[in-house]
């Protein structure tokens, strides 16, 4: 069932169109990704959903509410983690959670929340002394303190090191497992691919596609590449004659075999029959990156 419905959303700043007729729905209980390059209109889109900006056109419903008209009620059902939003330097983590908890009629137990986010021993630490990953976790905690049905997380892992990023991903999955619908804004392919049930691809203010990560990838040709170094010399026509193979290239000692279907099996069968050992065998498949390039005609710059 859809908990968020966005239809024909338009938002203009001065004369620049930031969001141009975007429509999508988010189902209850899923992690929904909004993916696109910087400046594509992702943040503007979710800020309209959060009721922080009023759209110039289109309609939005969040759990049946109009984000602008029913602002007050929306605030109790939607938690937001904003891009670049700090706390006062000297506020302690526990104080911040306790304060924000007091804003809601029926808040979560903030001590339990901190424990769940791995911050139990940081309750008395001043905000300025936290690491980047810890600050992000506090930010998630504040977005969840009001027991929201929907949590919007904007550029959650930007600026985090790889380990902190992976830890944060696990957290997001845990949040979803507690029944919260998550809207995740990101410009990291890997993040979207790993976390999202469905993804809205946005480019230059327009919606390019909405699909599951696998669905988006399948829109690109099923072309694959197998790379390896044969231990003994190999007659490349053996490979080139295979029906699955479209092209064989030689780069020094390395062979690159491009093709479709069950390419890997076909190639390794030939190698086995000729008793050739393949070193450094690698297979490359199309990913979200390729899907993005195919769908928008340009690279998602990171």
């Amino acid at each position: 069932m859809a908990i968020i419905e966005v239809e024909d959303l338009v938002k203009t700043y001065d004369r620049k169109v930031a969001v141009d007729g975007v429509s999508f729905t988010v189902d209850e209980g899923e992690i929904f990704g909004i993916l696109g390059p910087n400046g594509a209109g992702k943040t503007t889109t979710v800020e309209c959903v959060e009721g922080l900006r009023s759209p110039d056109g289109g309609t939005i419903r969040v759990d049946g509410l109009d984000p602008r008209r029913d602002r007050a009620e929306l605030r109790t059902r939607l938690g937001a983690q904003l891009q670049q939003s700090d706390l006062p330097d000297r506020i302690r983590v526990g104080e911040a959670l306790d304060l924000y908890a007091s804003f809601y009629r029926d808040p979560a137990d903030w001590r339990e929340l901190l424990a769940r986010l791995g911050l139990a021993d940081r309750a008395k630490t001043e905000y300025r002394k936290l690491s980047g990953g810890q600050k992000q976790r506090v930010s998630i905690a504040l977005a969840l303190i009001g027991k929201p049905k929907v949590a919007v997380l904007d550029e959650l892992t930007t600026g985090l090191d790889p380990q902190a990023r992976r830890d944060t991903w696990e957290l997001v999955e845990q949040v979803r497992d507690t029944g919260v619908t998550v809207v995740l804004v990101t410009h990291f392919m890997e993040e979207a691919e790993r976390l999202c049930d469905r993804i809205a691809l946005i480019d230059a203010g327009k919606l390019v596609a909405v699909d599951s990560p696998a669905g988006l990838v399948s829109r690109v040709d099923g072309e694959q590449r197998v790379k390896f170094r044969p231990a003994t010399p190999l007659d490349v026509t053996l490979l080139a004659d295979l029906p699955e193979v479209t092209r064989v290239e030689r780069h020094g000692p390395q062979l690159i075999v491009t093709g479709t279907g069950n390419l890997l099996h076909a190639v390794t069968s030939v190698l086995a029959r000729n008793q050739i050992v393949a070193a450094d065998l690698r297979i490359e498949q199309a990913g979200l990156d390729d899907a993005f390039i195919r769908l928008t005609g340009r690279k998602l710059s990171e």
Binding site: E50, L52, A72, R75, T76, L78, G79, A80, L82, Q84, S85, D86, L87, P88, Y100, F103, Y104, L142, A143, G146
Partner: peptide, 16 residues
Amino acid sequence: TYREKGVLRRFSTTPV
């Protein structure tokens, strides 16, 4: 400073 650091913005996502 509160405005610059987004403290005020974060407040506006809460019921207060």
